[in-house]
Write a protein that binds this DNA or RNA. Structure first.
Length: 574
DNA sequence: GCCGTTTTCGGCCCGACTGTTTTCAGTCG
């Protein structure tokens, strides 16, 4: 069972407990563990298999009660406590709380007075004007519920990091033009570079906050104003993305940036540390009693609680605070560390540019090498070549390299792993390549053990030095295929095969938690764009962002190595 | 329900905005 499935159950338990009016700290305990699980690098089921109950209780946020729920779930597929809660409140009722602005108190009231236990019934009741009979319900409140219902239908979940980044850039360029704007910084999950973004959180410092906020809500991109105050406004943009603008005094920049960047889990942990030191941290600074003792920079905030600066990508409450305290923060990889790109396609298969054009574009990015890795026969829809056609491509690359000075095009291939685990090209062909990337491109819906065996077989081939997009997911479009990734990773470690972090913004595969696990298992990765045109080579930044979220350092990523060292690593398996 | 560089019991981050209220509850991040 995946951690995310277990996390979802705990999220739901938390919501149900909220409806019951349970102790808020108990509710938070469930929320906290759910969040923790989403970022956990190891699979809980594995942890339990290996170390039993005791090992489960080692996981942060898991105590006696939650551990027993997990064991029950793993053994029987059910959790009694969860089922009992669900009997009281059906799933359709929980959905009510997904309506923006509608929380547990309101939901409960609606159920009590009008037996409303689904969004459909709520829509009907609003249309019939029933709600005005409720105590504390006047025109505006009813109007807000109506708008919330509309909004829920419209807002289609989360945007890809790449999309949200572009929206943010456009919005920021507008905000910059507003008079009185001092500093401006996109915060929230965008600054933490999460793979998907739910809303834009933008921080501005200014001495004239009201003027800035007034101008902000009048920007042409704004479709609707959700809330307006003297320090903060929330709007829905025309692209249906929510944007929150917070405007604070310039001297609060650091504290505000820290607060607004999150994550929530990280912020809570930092603020708890502050309390232990007799301090208080908020977006307005660091305080000892009423005296403000810092907050102009983020460094000051961390320093106040005795920590070095923690990069935003690490602020997920995944042990970064403990690591910081122990002086063991990773020295995160940076985009400039990348020296080449080991997966891309040319006109020889389904790419849009010639090999020479790809090389030229890569050189402009400051790279020293690329590997061209066109498709093999089975992916005929993607221009996959026969072995004979492929050998001609290799000949061409040799000739091209004679011409290129100070740059190297590596001979590569993205070879299909067929359903039975064999590869699409013979070893005699693979042997001619410097980079052999194995990948699954078909029969995604195999049973887990079969898919695992299929990939394991490919890893055993001594010419395969890289496994591409190991889970096959497309964010928001296709779930990862069923595979025992832990086994795959261990086999990668044993056989000396490297794993890919595919930098395509829709893939980001391996993901951040997988990267962390790979690092624990001492497996090296390669961050590749899988570019199908020269322009796609710039997707590398999304791969590096994910690697940073996965705590990876320069030395963990083979395409940061100079060419000689890289080749040694690539040939180590043969 | 979790957790411990004060604690195995008594804590648990901090503040903004809205709507309906005359001081606050609900929701959100």
């Amino acid at each position: 069972m995946e951690n995310s499935e277990i996390a979802r159950i705990f999220w739901q338990i938390a919501e149900l407990l909220e409806l019951k009016g349970e102790n808020p700290f108990k509710i938070r305990a469930y929320q906290k563990v759910a969040r923790n699980l989403e970022g956990l690098s190891q699979n809980l089921e594995e942890i339990y298999k290996k170390g039993g109950l005791a090992a489960l209780e080692e996981v942060p946020g898991i105590g006696e009660a939650i551990a027993s729920h997990i064991v029950e779930l793993l053994k029987t597929g059910k959790v009694k406590k969860y089922r009992e809660l669900l009997e009281e409140f059906p799933p359709s009722f929980i959905e009510l709380m997904e309506v923006p602005g509608l929380g547990p108190k309101t939901a409960l009231l609606l159920k009590k007075k009008f037996k409303i236990d689904s969004i459909k019934k709520l829509e009907k009741a609003t249309a019939q004007g029933l709600l005005k009979n409720l105590p504390g319900f006047k025109e505006k409140k009813i109007e807000n519920i109506r708008k919330g219902l509309e909004l829920k239908k419209k807002v289609a979940g989360r945007y890809l990091l790449s999309e949200a980044g572009e929206f943010a850039e456009a919005l920021i360029s507008q905000i910059k033009k507003i008079k009185g704007v001092d500093k401006i910084l996109p915060c929230g999950s965008l600054r933490r570079q999460k793979e998907t973004i739910g809303d834009l959180d933008i921080l501005v410092t200014s001495n004239r906050p009201q003027a800035v906020l007034d101008a902000f809500v009048k920007l042409p991109q704004v479709a609707r104003i959700l809330g307006e105050g003297p320090t903060k406004s929330s709007v829905i943009l025309k692209n249906n993305l929510q944007a929150d603008l917070r405007v604070l005094d310039p001297e609060n920049f650091g504290a505000a940036a820290h607060y607004f960047t999150g994550s929530k889990l990280h912020n809570i942990a930092i603020r708890e540390l502050a309390i232990k030191k007799g301090l208080k941290i908020s977006e307005y600074g660091v305080f000892r009693g009423k005296k403000r003792i810092g907050g102009k920079t983020e460094e000051e905030v961390f320093k106040a609680v005795g920590l070095p600066y923690i990069p935003p990508e690490l602020r997920e409450g995944r042990g970064e605070i403990e690591a910081a305290r122990a002086g063991k923060l990773p020295d995160l990889i940076e985009l400039q560390d990348i020296r080449g790109d080991l997966q891309m396609h040319s006109k020889y298969s389904d790419g849009g540019n010639s090999i020479e054009e790809m090389a030229e574009a890569a050189r402009k990015l400051g790279y020293q090498y690329i590997a061209v890795t066109d498709h093999t026969l089975s992916t005929r829809v993607a221009g996959g070549q026969t072995e004979k056609e492929f050998l001609k491509e290799l000949e061409y690359i040799d000739k091209l390299n004679d011409r290129l000075k100070g740059f190297r095009v590596l001979k590569g291939v993205e070879v299909d792993i067929l359903p039975d685990g064999t590869l699409d090209y013979k070893d005699a062909i693979l042997k001619e390549c410097e980079v052999v990337i194995a990948a699954v491109h078909s029969n995604f819906k195999m049973p887990k053990d079969k898919m695992t065996r299929r990939i394991l077989a490919a890893l055993k081939n001594k010419y395969v030095n890289l496994l591409s997009h190991p889970t096959g997911r497309l964010i928001g479009k296709r779930d990862p295929y069923e595979v025992d990734l832990e086994k795959i990773m261990k086999a990668a470690a044993d056989t000396g095969t490297y794993l890919e972090l595919n930098a395509h913004p829709e893939r980001l595969d391996l993901n951040d938690a997988h990267c962390l696990r790979a690092k624990e298992l001492k497996i090296k990765l390669s961050i590749n764009t899988d570019a199908h045109s020269a322009g796609n080579l710039s997707d590398m930044k999304y791969g590096v962002a994910t690697a940073r979220r996965g705590w990876l350092e320069k030395k963990d990523v083979i395409n940061t190595y100079p060419i000689d060292k890289l080749l040694k690593f690539l040939y180590a398996k043969r």
